[in-house]
Amino acid sequence: MGRGRVELKRIENKINRQVTFAKRRNGLLKKAYELSVLCDAEVALIIFSNRGKLYEFCSTQSMTKTLEKYQKCSYAGPETAVQNRESEQLKASRNEYLKLKARVENLQRTQRHLIAWMNLLGEDLDSLGIKELESLEKQLDSSLKHVRTTRTKHLVDQLTELQRKEQMVSEANRCLRRKLEESNHVRGQQVWEQGCNLIGYERQPEVQQPLHGGNGFFHPLDAAGEPTLQIGYPAEHHEAMNSACMNTYMPPWLP
């Protein structure tokens, strides 16, 4: 007699329900393993009990890679691919539109600047009204004031720079003048010392006296052999002193 067909409904008995869950869970995991081995299939099985406990089986080493593969295959169907292409085309069209818009704005800005420049030059003024002409006149006055202010600032800067250079040159001249005065002072002092060295005492030459008898050991005293004091410069040094004094100037420290 064969086994009867089991009615598929929730088992009310808690113990029987847990026993049935354990048996069928193990059988399901076994079938998944057999399917992956026999058919060389990539199988992933996830089971949660009524208490929230997780039971899983994966024929590969990583359950995460299998789930990622599942998500790509499930959520990226043909319709999704078409939508992605349309989205990319829309994005490219929008970028092109933004580029063209920016280019048009630049051209318009350039045109406005060109018209304003021509108006400043006094050209194409017939199409302007009274208010526009008054506004243009105010702009010209403001521009003229700005130009004058900038020119004045540049002139003041140049004047300040020239004054600074003038002070530097004056300071250099003072230093050179001080060095020149010191050099002249030292030179005059040297000339004065040389002149003082020429002034001195000289001895008169001794007159050779003949020997007086005897063995010549004793000599009589002679006043001519004594030194004499001479007042003033010797005659042979007058010309040297005159030439030295004529070529120099009087030192400032002399009375």
Rank of each mutant, 00 (worst) to 15 (best):
Q83G: 10
Q83C: 11
Q83P: 13
N84P: 15
E86Q: 11
L90I: 13
K91H: 12
A92M: 15
S93T: 15
R94I: 15
Y97C: 15
Y97G: 15
Y97R: 13
A102E: 07
A102W: 01
L107I: 04
T110W: 00
Q111T: 10
Q111L: 06
I115H: 04
I115N: 03
A116H: 07
A116I: 08
W117Q: 15
N119A: 11
L120T: 12
D124Y: 03
S127D: 03
L128G: 06
L128F: 02
K131S: 13
E134R: 08
K138F: 03
S142P: 08
L144P: 15
L144M: 02
K145V: 12
R148S: 05
V156P: 01
L162M: 03
L162W: 00
Q163K: 02
R164K: 06
R164E: 03
K165P: 09
K165F: 01
K165S: 02
S170I: 13
A172E: 05
A172P: 14
R177V: 13
K179Y: 06
E181L: 08
E182W: 10
E182R: 06
H185S: 07
Q189M: 04
G195Q: 13
N197P: 15
I199F: 05
G200N: 11
Q204M: 09
Q204V: 12
P205K: 00
